[in-house]
Amino acid sequence: MIPDLNPLLLFFASVFTSNILLSNFLGMCSFISISRDFKSSNGLGMAVTLVMTITTVLNWIVEKYIIVPFGLEYLRYIIYIIVIAAIVQILEMIIDRISPNLYISLGIFLPLITVNCAILGVALFMQLRNYSLIQSAFFGFGSGIGWWLAIVLLAAIRLKVDKAPVPAPLKGVGITLITIGIMAMAFIGFAGMINVQ
């Protein structure tokens, strides 16, 4: 049964209140290493949003028309990851053909994305929660935007923090984690904006 949730509410919740990165910790690896550089963060965020939206929708279709009718539930993880890898490959080729400029700013991040936990995570959440196609699309897009927002914000903060006089053992990863923690606390505040009738 499909839950009766407003797609816009899902979008809002996945960007702010339950940001895929800040509350589910998905996509941390590339998040910490890439956020050192503001420009790359922006590029990666854009790429993640694009791939996440497309793969969530596509995995929804694959789930409904291939996995369930053929009883392949036990191979779900492999199928999802193959779909994601294939989409990343195709996007890389398309972007390379259409716009070499975009390829330089976006394309180099694409191979990183196949193993980004957030992409697979969103697909698995979508399947588990039984969303409709529209809900999945909004959820995927919202999670992507949320990830993008989080990495751009962190990169901007890190521009300043990296120059601050932080205790030596805490430099780099340590202080970054504390920064992310404070960001996560701020984002929790958005929960008050959702009304439960």
Partner: peptide, 13 residues
């Protein structure tokens, strides 16, 4: 969730 970041940061420290 935020405390997971804080705890990990303290551990790393």
């Amino acid at each position: 969730p935020p405390s997971a970041f804080f705890m990990l940061a303290i551990f790393i420290w």
